[in-house]
Simulated assay, not measured.
Amino acid sequence: MPDFFATCPRGLEKLLADELGGFGADNVRPSAGGVGFAGDWLLCYRANLQSRLASRILWRVKDAMPYRNEQDVYQAVYDLPWPRWFDVGNTILVKVTAIKCPLKSLEFITLKIKDAVCDKFRKEKNARPSVAKLDPDMRIHAFFQGEQFTLYLDTSGDALYKRGVRTHTNIAPLRENLAAGILKMTGWQPGTPLLDPMCGSGTFLIEAAQMSLNIMPGIGRHFAFEHLKNFDAKTWNALRAAALAAQQPVSELPIYGSDLYGDALKAAHQNLEEAGIRETVDLKQCNALEASPPEKEGILVANLPYGERMGDEDELAELYPQLGDALKQRFGGWSAWLFTADLRIVKLMRLTPSRRIPLYNGAIECRLFEYRIVAGSNRT
């Protein structure tokens, strides 16, 4: 049975493990930055199509093995049956990541791995695959940890957070799988009122609408596994057809978004329109400090502005206490979840968070804070 590794934003590993288990994965093993699991190729297809949390689904083609130098790595890569897995006409790209790797140059070892793959094709097919830095057919991932390395073939292609629906973004976009993870952490469920008063290009709104309508995150895109020689088109087409049949009709949902800036709101409008779900979300232009709750109870979620979106740190420092006051005065009965990289918020909001969850947006360390707003009180 093939073994896989699903990468994800740090902080989402447990949620991703639960999601993969729900798909039927075996031997689920959470670790830093992802989850190892075993399953058949139908499970691989399903994980790519349905996972809202994974960044990539990698097929492990070489277990962790020791090496002493670059030649050891070259030989181990060369010995693998690359022409059995994909065609010489497919373009390739090699990516190397390392932790405490004794090799002198990661660039050089990247070239050695590429040479080993190409040399194997040249020996068996009298031709070699071309390298493509942009949009390659097959991505080969090598992970070095100390004096061992592991090799993977990427079954996803473009990262899975690229759903193919959010083409208009603002300055500080939130990755879609991180937004989906945050929504799951809040406890939000389809049918529960949701408000994003700083919606930007609409990432939270689109993820929530797709969850509500049972629209699979990968339904509108292609995957690298379609280039593999073992690709089962009949099984894949049946899986996609079942996913399309399970979608709910587009209708109004209790999902609300607003933003101070017209350009951001225009991007959200366009993204929802192009995703075919514009009528599901109530959008309006509004200052978050003046926003009113659209319903009696619900969940408020916001990716708070970064410095480049808002201005200097002093301007942000003024925003936090004003936002705290607005929540206290108008959002009694709501649960507010604020995502930020600015930890000054803890003191400046003048509200006590009930939860603080460490997360990463790319390489940026962030926190997700929960504030339970009690009606008629100046404190949470």
Rank of each mutant, 00 (worst) to 15 (best):
F149N: 08
R10I: 04
T91Y: 02
L228C: 09
L304V: 00
R68N: 13
V77H: 02
K14E: 15
V131K: 10
I182R: 01
F231S: 03
R56D: 09
D263M: 08
A208S: 10
L153E: 03
L228P: 02
W188A: 08
R122Q: 15
A127N: 13
K95T: 13
A209L: 07
E124R: 13
R379Y: 08
Y261H: 14
P2Q: 04
T352H: 07
G187F: 09
S258T: 10
N126F: 04
A54L: 06
I345K: 00
A246Q: 12
Y320L: 08
N170K: 05
A336Q: 03
N214M: 04
V96S: 01
R10Q: 14
E273P: 05
F144G: 03
P353Y: 11
G164L: 12
L348M: 11
S130V: 09
V61K: 06
E313I: 12
W41L: 13
L178M: 02
S292E: 15
Q322R: 15
D259F: 05
S130F: 10
V94S: 04
R344M: 02
E70Y: 09
G146C: 06
I215H: 03
W236A: 10
A267T: 05
G307M: 08
I373W: 04
F369Y: 15
N27R: 14
R367A: 01
D196K: 06
F5M: 07
P197V: 05
G11R: 04
M349Q: 06
R128G: 05
G89C: 10
Q285W: 02
P254T: 06
L289E: 11
E315V: 04
L351H: 05
L15N: 08
D282T: 15
L15T: 01
G362Y: 00
D115H: 09
T169S: 14
P193L: 09
K133A: 12
S251E: 12
K95G: 10
D137E: 14
F331Y: 14
M185C: 02
L151M: 12
M310R: 02
L289H: 10
W236K: 02
K234F: 08
D3K: 12
A363C: 00
N90A: 15
I215W: 06
G22Q: 06
G181N: 11
Q145V: 14
I255P: 01
N48A: 03
R60I: 00
A317S: 14
P129A: 13
S335C: 06
I255H: 02
Q247I: 00
G333R: 10
L103V: 06
D72L: 08
R330K: 14
E313R: 13
L348S: 03
P9H: 03
S31D: 14
L16Y: 03
D40V: 12
C44M: 13
K162Y: 08
L359M: 10
K14H: 13
E176C: 09
G262Q: 14
Q189K: 13
A17Y: 05
E13I: 00
L348K: 12
I109R: 04
S51V: 01
F108C: 08
A238Y: 08
Y67I: 01
A267K: 15
T352I: 04
P9F: 03
L160R: 07
G376F: 02
L338V: 00
D63K: 14
L151F: 04
C199S: 11
E207Y: 01
Q75K: 09
W85V: 01
Q210L: 12
Q148M: 07
P254W: 07
A336W: 05
A275G: 13
R355G: 01
V88Y: 11
T340L: 06
